[in-house]
Design a protein around this nucleic acid. Sequence first.
DNA 1: CGCCGCCTTGACTCCCTTCAATGCGAGTGG
DNA 2: CCACTCGCATTGAAGGGAGTCAAGGCGGCG
Lengths: 230, 230
Amino acid sequence: MLTAQRLGDAELSSSLHNAKNAAEESILAASAAIRKLAPGETLYIEGELAISCFQVVSGVVKEYNTLIDGRRQITDFYSLGNIFGISEADEYLHTAEAVTNCVVRIFPRDTYLQYALASREQSQKIVTDLMTRLHRAEERAIMLGRMNARQRVATFLQRLSEDQGHPQKIRISMSRQDIADHLGLTIETVCRVLTELKKTGYIDMDGARILSIKEPERMENIACVGSTML
Amino acid sequence: MLTAQRLGDAELSSSLHNAKNAAEESILAASAAIRKLAPGETLYIEGELAISCFQVVSGVVKEYNTLIDGRRQITDFYSLGNIFGISEADEYLHTAEAVTNCVVRIFPRDTYLQYALASREQSQKIVTDLMTRLHRAEERAIMLGRMNARQRVATFLQRLSEDQGHPQKIRISMSRQDIADHLGLTIETVCRVLTELKKTGYIDMDGARILSIKEPERMENIACVGSTML
DNA sequence: CGCCGCCTTGACTCCCTTCAATGCGAGTGG
DNA sequence: CCACTCGCATTGAAGGGAGTCAAGGCGGCG
């Protein structure tokens, strides 16, 4: 869901190597700058004036809030094609930081918004995309509010798998701490659950960052993704 | 936040007794039907074909998902002026049910979407509104993922207070079960926290449904609303 | 080799859930 | 007017799952 699946039409149309309507696309492309980031580098910090928005060209970016007690809540991980950094406010509502080495395209916020509202079709796309994001945010709320640690981790691994096109071996780009901060758990709990999933034969691991899901159907049962069915 | 505060421009412009641009407004009003609901009546059920969207004229409506194990996650309570029932999908993603006696206006979904995208200004409003909702959903995710029971209840009470314009006495329209289902807690925990807040002098209660916050500042410290500050 | 950051594992604690019983107020019928 | 009942709310006791604190383990890199 993080990349391909989540790419709403809005992103697709302005996605890399995918510009059907090059005329409209060029409006954006013309004003796009490129920036490279090393792991840990920040694109923007919560509260800063939001002058730009971004699109991932390569790598993974995390977006998070820092709570007063120092804990972090990672709201999302962005990868290839994802656009981020826009909100209803004039300030950034999150902090964005590179997880891996990254390349991002940078658009002036105003330019992007003008482009987004330029035509009825564009507006429609943006609206649909926002509704999808809203839906996803609500699903995440259900996950955080209702699922236990095992379900959260299993769901997370399934999403990772989807993002990468269900390969044999899944690459986990982010640290255990990042996973914990995303799932509302502690790093220790994430580790313990992974160990348990390994012992019970759900997954295999090749080092800490390479993983394979052995029995996707059984995982499905744990994760209950889209489990809000009646 | 549930009513006045949350009313994005999109809602305000089409809100009751507040139609500045009556011409545009009439497009909607002309196609609006009215329906009255008793507590517990449903407007729509998750998975149904989404043919209408709704606006609260009076009363409170809850919107929730039912999980496979029968638990419910209430995503939101809607009151005066709030519009709900639209999504990116052709099916409703939630179930909507009256909490109190309610009156709602009903719009055909297509009519509403046409209206929403009719002009650049309208689109802008819808986009802004959706971004605000997204932001709120993310805050709720943080609440569910990171706050303990006391913080969640305190935050909920503050929101209720805001909605009602910070009166001396707050009316709690929904049941303890509804509150629990909204906050990701059990009914017992909600009760215990309320009792504790009462004993420690934060609140007073006059029956189960009337409440007053005695020391808003101290409550603020518990709740940490918008606690995502650096 | 040895350091350093990240990951893993263990023991203990605590908050919330679960299960169960009781309280309470509104509506009903005797 | 009172007894009864029914739904909702409250309180208590016990258990479990995740957090906390602490101690290694592992791998990359100088």
